[in-house]
């Protein structure tokens, strides 16, 4: 089944490139993004997400995006992605889907689609579009070590997106169904959706998602076949030079409440010309929970390139009867879009 889906997705990706186009219809387009990133732990023994005292460069990655507007109704798009020296930067299909413009306000997507329910989940690898070196990992991480998944890269299935304007506001409602993919298994029978409203100053988004984990390994043993429900909500306020971002998600495991998880963060940034210094607090309540306080800065080098650096202090939950020991991590990234 998975092989069949993979073949379908690859076929779709190829179709994007070779499909014909007409005069005023957009021609096939290629875009891309690239990151050179590094992180280092300031502790001699403790690590955080692969970063140790010798430094970690696994966040270096690139993506190539292909799209083709076939006619007024159908559009094909796909993205290939490569990351991580441990996987030898093997290319894989990040996502690939066909979009039907059903009416002026309604689109229906079919294929492998980026998970849409969180504020940044659709562009989690594209560093130019957000403030941090990476969106707070207490929410945007699919390696949850025995707890409910709050985030996933993508799902295979279908989604319907309805968008409408009212005055200065844009309202969007989205419904999805399919199977989700995470680091070490699949999230079957997934159904969910989100609603959002935005204008020039703010964005509000709320989401709901339900799935049944299958074949998840290691610390996730026992999560199989338990129905998981995830509710999420987020807001962005961009007013004058002030940027405030907050997001929350809670995953509830039916019949195994000890595997529930909650992730959240709040960020405040202030734009000073090309530089945006920022501070973030984030927290994960889960099997292996932690609190993180970070400070960082984004430097907009040009319209297509940014340099970002973050320092954060990570405090993992203490084992019973022990005191928690925190560690400092520095992470930097150069991001480009083309």
């Amino acid at each position: 089944m998975i092989r069949a889906i993979t073949k379908l997705v690859i076929s779709l990706a190829l179709l994007v490139i070779i499909a014909p186009f007409t005069a005023l219809a957009a021609q096939p387009e290629i875009h891309g993004f690239f990151r050179a990133g590094a992180a280092i732990s300031l502790d001699d023994t403790k690590t955080y997400q692969g970063a140790d005292k010798n430094g970690d460069f696994s966040s270096t990655h690139f993506g190539l995006n292909f799209s083709n507007q076939l006619d007024s109704k159908w559009r094909l798009a796909s993205q290939i992605f490569a990351a991580g020296y441990e996987e030898n930067y093997n290319l894989h299909i990040d996502w690939a889907y066909a979009t039907l413009q059903a009416t002026d306000d309604l689109k229906v997507n079919f294929g492998k689609i980026k998970y849409p329910n969180l504020l940044y989940s659709e562009v989690v690898d594209v560093g130019n579009v957000y403030l941090w070196t990476a969106p707070p990992q207490e929410l945007y991480n699919s390696e949850t070590e025995g707890s409910a998944y709050l985030f996933m890269e993508s799902f295979v299935g279908a989604s319907a997106v309805y968008s409408v304007f009212a005055g200065d506001f844009e309202f969007t409602a989205q419904a999805l169904a399919g199977n989700g993919g995470v680091e070490d298994g699949s999230l079957d029978k997934m159904i969910g959706g989100s609603v959002s409203v935005n204008n020039e100053i703010f964005t509000l988004k709320a989401g709901f998602n339900q799935y049944t984990p299958k074949e998840v390994e290691d610390g996730d043993e026992g999560l199989d076949d338990n129905v998981v429900s995830v509710v999420s909500g987020g807001a962005i306020v961009n007013w004058n030079n002030v940027l405030v971002i907050g997001e929350y998600a809670k995953g509830t495991v039916d019949g195994a409440s000890e595997k529930d998880s909650t992730g959240m963060y709040a960020t405040v940034g202030y734009v000073i010309g090309s530089v945006t210094p920022n501070v973030t607090f984030s927290k994960l309540d889960a099997h292996e929970g932690r609190e993180v306080i970070g400070v960082g800065a984004k430097y907009q080098m040009s319209s297509s390139s940014t340099f970002k650096i973050d320092y954060f202090n990570v405090t993992p939950d203490a084992e019973e009867g022990e005191e928690s020991e925190s560690l400092g991590v520095i992470r930097g990234a150069l991001d480009f879009v083309f």
Partner: peptide
């Protein structure tokens, strides 16, 4: 550029 990056790289 940031706006279009969001649109392009989410398809």
């Amino acid at each position: 550029k940031s706006y279009w990056s969001t649109r392009i790289f989410s398809g």
